[in-house]
Amino acid sequence: MTVITVPLSDRSYDIVIEDGVLARAGDYLGPIARGRRMVIVADAQVPMHLATLRTSLTASGIASEAIEIPAGEGSKSWATLELLLDSLLALGVERGDHIVALGGGVIGDLVGFAASILKRGCGFVQVPTTLLAQVDSSVGGKTGINTRAGKNLVGAFHQPALVLIDPTTLDTLPPREVRAGYAEVVKYGLIDDPDFFAWCESNGTVLLLGDPLARAHAIARSVSAKARIVGADERETTGTRALLNLGHTFGHALEAEAGFDGSLLHGEGVAAGMALAFAFSAEQGLCRAEDADRVARHLRDAGLPDGIAAAGITASGETLVGHMLHDKKREGGTLPFLLARGIGQTYLDRSVDLQQVATFLDRCPR
């Protein structure tokens, strides 16, 4: 078992990483439930995990109710949020209660946002069941939904009270979903940990095949990195936390063009976006072409898209930049980009010319 703390003063919380912790969740949730019933909001695709969790709660003397949400990015919507809030209110959820989010990043983002606004703020617990959620979205308190204008444009910072990560839940995950989550693992190496990126190059294949030691190491290393960054800059006020968005400006534009219909998963968009960020950095003379090639090669070896063509997108650079203009990080008419001076040397650049970006994207293979 590994326990990592997100250091946020009186709002600090633990991330527990342990094989089989889902079956022992009641031991951890008992002090949070305080004798109250717990409502679980679960991805409809994880009925076996929901059954395990509810059995554990029952064994610990905790009553529970369950609300199932359809899988997929389409559930991060106003319509689903309204239905969820109405269901939680109908169940009599009180401000002091904690809602449990069981599933991937979609469920965590949706439930966290619902908890942030229900009765002006309820508690919630993250129990992520996908690799992407375990290494990234379940930690840090970013919650939200998508709109017609773009991804995660409506949301709030709302930290969970606890995160329970059971790596064995990944055994039931489709390989494509595991690969998509792996993109976020690679990201931590590219941000500021070149040794971890080298570890990924050597161990990524066995990790993707389900090796428990490689998987546990990658999750713990990723979560530790994110906890450190979130603790230093919870709300992206200093620019440190913005480093976690590597690949996301390009990636969200690709996702928006794909229509959030599942044809391009979030992690796949991030992978393509990271490759594009390094390729653009190399074109601008910021990093060596060899670094960009190394990143793209590893993503390809992991079965992830390494650019626009591999992501299945044919839109023009101008169209993709148009999607970027809806990015929530835009400020004062400028859009910050995460670029790189090398592997493990990501930095925030607020002076990027969007016309240069559009021209660069037009030159990328389709």
Rank of each mutant, 00 (worst) to 15 (best):
R95E: 04
S77R: 08
L286P: 09
A227L: 02
A114M: 07
G72Q: 05
E268D: 03
D362Q: 07
T2E: 14
G26D: 02
G210A: 07
E73M: 10
D171F: 08
I165K: 11
C364V: 11
A310K: 00
G247V: 02
D171T: 14
V230C: 05
A180Q: 09
T314F: 02
T2Y: 10
E283F: 09
H252F: 11
M38Y: 05
L207D: 12
M48E: 14
P365L: 09
A275F: 03
F250I: 08
C287G: 08
L254T: 09
R300Y: 00
V127T: 12
G92T: 08
S222H: 04
D27F: 11
S351M: 03
V106F: 01
T5P: 00
T130S: 15
G342Q: 08
M38L: 15
V39R: 11
A232K: 10
T55I: 00
A161K: 01
K187F: 08
E82A: 15
L348C: 04
H298K: 00
T240C: 02
G273V: 04
E318F: 00
F196E: 01
I69Y: 07
A133C: 11
D97C: 09
R54P: 00
R148Y: 12
A289K: 14
H298S: 06
I107L: 09
N203T: 04
I107W: 07
C122L: 00
F124E: 00
V39M: 07
S316C: 03
E255C: 03
T129E: 09
A275C: 13
I229R: 07
V352W: 04
R330Y: 04
I229G: 07
A296V: 10
G61P: 00
D171N: 15
G96E: 03
D306M: 01
L83A: 10
G105H: 13
H49R: 13
G267P: 12
F250E: 05
A149G: 01
K328G: 07
L354A: 13
R350E: 13
Y13P: 00
A302G: 00
L304W: 01
V321D: 10
T319A: 13
N146A: 09
F157S: 03
A214K: 05
R294D: 06
D233V: 05
D14H: 01
G108A: 04
L243Q: 04
M274K: 05
R294P: 06
R288K: 14
M324K: 03
L207C: 14
D293L: 14
E255F: 05
Y28H: 15
D327R: 09
A156M: 11
R11E: 10
G239W: 05
A225E: 06
L339I: 10
V93M: 13
F260C: 06
R294S: 08
I219P: 04
V16M: 04
T249H: 09
E318M: 02
G121M: 07
G269W: 03
P7N: 12
T80R: 15
S56T: 00
R221W: 04
D362H: 08
R148S: 15
T238R: 12
